[in-house]
């Protein structure tokens, strides 16, 4: 599970990006964060991932203190899978190498099987040897999703992962995320602009405005 309590972060020029935010995501459940551009959604995700240090408040991951103003647990020790706003695929690695980057301790055959399985799920079979420069924008986004799912993380942080995908593909990818979530009993924090997407993927929606979460409630 993930829990944040009074989480706050400000940048030198401007108001608080995240302002005393509190919520929790129990294992096996999903939460969507909705809000306009610049309201602090991405910063909150980065704080939970351990990519930023909070100015105030704490982040708990599986009940352990993961971040507070004095200490940050390294991101790779949080058992997190993350999709960033941009695909952020490493250009010098193939699709397969990108997907397997975070996977530890698998034999070559198992790793191949896992990659094949993921490529099939994201509908990119046979593209494992391609480089990111040979992919379209939508394909890159799906590879980024597969990379986040590959190590079977217990926590998924997805920052507008399906932007620019066509509607049909988007719904199919959402069902992939849903089934992985169920299989791993993972918790999901899903950032999006799209209310319909938020309703499809999550059990609960947090509405974020100017770094705060004035409203949260179950999906209608």
């Amino acid at each position: 599970m993930i829990a944040v309590h009074q989480l706050t972060k400000h940048f030198p020029e401007g108001p608080n990006a995240v302002d005393h935010v509190s919520f929790d995501i129990p294992a096996g459940s999903s939460v969507a964060v909705l809000g306009p551009s610049g309201c602090g959604k991405t910063t909150m995700l980065r704080l939970i991932a351990g990519l930023e240090k909070p100015d105030d408040g704490i982040v708990l991951v599986d009940g352990r203190r993961a971040s507070d103003p004095s200490w940050v647990l390294p991101p790779h020790l949080r058992d997190i899978g993350m999709v960033f706003q941009t695909p952020a695929l490493w250009p010098h690695l193939t699709v397969e190498q990108n997907i397997l980057f975070g996977v530890h301790g698998l034999r070559r055959r198992e790793a191949r099987r896992r990659t094949g399985e993921l490529l099939e799920m994201i509908e990119l079979e046979g593209m494992g040897n391609r480089y990111p420069s040979q992919l379209s924008g939508g394909q890159s986004r799906r590879v980024a999703l597969a990379r986040a799912l590959a190590p079977r993380p217990r926590h998924l942080l997805l920052d507008e992962p399906l932007t620019s995908l066509d509607r049909g593909l988007k719904w199919r990818m959402l069902s992939v995320i849903g089934s992985e979530l169920k299989r791993e009993a993972a918790c999901l924090l899903y950032v999006t602009h799209d209310a319909e997407e938020a309703e499809r993927v999550s059990m609960r929606v947090l509405q974020m405005e100017s770094g705060r979460i004035p409203e949260q409630g179950p999906v209608s």
Binding site: P74, H76, M82, W90, F101, G102, P151
Partner: peptide, 24 residues
């Protein structure tokens, strides 16, 4: 920086430095 951070979520910093930052 996004490429470094994408790696940091999955692997230790030294691994990310050697496998992502230096090759790039």
């Amino acid at each position: 920086v996004a490429l470094i951070e994408a790696g940091r979520v999955a692997r230790a910093d030294s691994h990310v430095f050697l496998k992502v930052a230096v090759p790039l």
